[in-house]
């Protein structure tokens, strides 16, 4: 296990270098820079501008800026956000955590919707229940998730107006958050998370449900499930212990590949639901060419992606003894 982790660490270095290089120079290529608005402002003298340029290192060639930034990053310093005048890490880390909460919550919901539905559909293949699920899934598959989000918001608003229930559909905390006890605060965040997470989970669950159903049907026909039945195991054991356990192997293998889509899906919802995740901040940063903030975010996301992939590799090795992790 340890050699595996070390190897993955070494393997990830080129990926990281490439990602950082790419993002840094793409931002440089864009016309103007962070100081362009200041330059257009007649109230700022050219001396002041020069001083600003020196402070931010913008007077140096791009490759020097890059090397400097890389060097600092290895010391854990991701540079300064031009806009916020604060260290990048301090600003983006809490936001990234918020996004992670949303991502994890929606993953949990995603699997807890898709697994039971997929298994049910396979076990009761062609039953009225299975057919009904298939119709809904078919509908959802062709349904853009922004539209789903809007519909959900609309209906919750209607519900709120009709019942007076306080169902949050925006932000991450209520106004009285600071007065709540710790447990109450957790519950409050959870309440805010559930709707956007559910929207994301539902709009993606259709595909996974179909995959699980298909996998289950295939494994149910396999020789080793017949062997298990010939041993006299119960229906439940045949389905969960022998069929499901094998049916999810390709799904576990696919978790790593799911992460980029998850990140973009979460980002989209953060915007729609005014959720204080990283994406809204990032969009502003791109608009203002806040170089180090964008670059820092990209590096951290790449690291998180690599970690996510390692975790999914380890998971796969745990569930499938034929996969070696060493």
């Amino acid at each position: 296990m340890i050699p595996f982790l070390l190897r993955r660490l070494v393997q990830s270095i080129p990926t990281l270098l490439l990602a950082s290089l790419l993002i840094f120079f793409v931002i440089q290529l864009a016309p103007g820079d962070f100081l362009t608005p200041a330059k257009l402002n007649p109230n700022i003298s050219s001396e002041q501008l020069a001083a600003l340029e020196r402070n931010f290192g913008l007077d140096r060639p791009a490759w020097q800026q890059y090397l400097l930034w890389m060097g600092n990053m290895f010391k854990g310093d991701f540079g300064l956000s031009f806009q916020y005048q604060q260290p990048v890490l301090d600003i983006i880390w809490p936001r990234i955590l918020n996004s992670l909460y949303l991502a994890v919550m929606s993953l949990v919901l995603f699997y807890s919707i898709a697994i039971p539905l997929g298994v049910y559909g396979a076990v009761r293949q062609n039953s009225p229940g299975d057919n009904a699920i298939n119709v809904v899934l078919y509908f959802l598959l062709g349904f853009p998730s922004f539209f789903l989000a809007l519909i959900v918001i609309y209906f919750i608003l209607q519900l709120r107006n009709a019942t007076g229930l306080d169902i949050p559909i925006g932000g991450m905390t209520s106004n009285n958050f600071d007065e709540l006890p710790v447990f109450g605060q957790m519950l409050d965040v959870l309440k805010h998370l559930i709707i956007p997470a559910l929207v994301l989970a539902i709009s993606d669950a259709a595909g996974l449900t179909r995959v699980i159903r298909g996998q289950m049907l295939e494994v149910m026909r396999s020789d080793y499930v017949r062997t298990a039945r010939a041993k006299g195991v119960s229906e439940r054991t045949a389905i969960w212990k022998h069929t499901f356990r094998n049916a999810i192997l390709p799904i576990v293998a696919g978790i790593g590949g799911l992460l980029p889509a998850l990140i973009s899906g979460v980002g989209f919802l953060e915007v729609v639901f005014a959720y204080p995740g990283i994406t809204p901040m990032l969009l502003t940063a791109i608009g203002t060419q806040d170089l180090y903030l964008i670059a820092g975010f990209t590096v951290i996301t790449t690291v998180l992606l690599i970690v996510g992939n390692v975790i999914s590799d380890i998971l796969l090795a745990v569930v499938d003894p034929r996969v070696k992790v060493a």
């Binding site: 080793y224 062997t227 356990r245 192997l249 034929r322």
Partner: peptide
């Protein structure tokens, strides 16, 4: 009962 295909008749996991 034992079956024809020993390669696939045992659960791999």
């Amino acid at each position: 009962m034992i079956f024809q295909e020993p390669m696939t008749s045992l659960n791999p996991v």
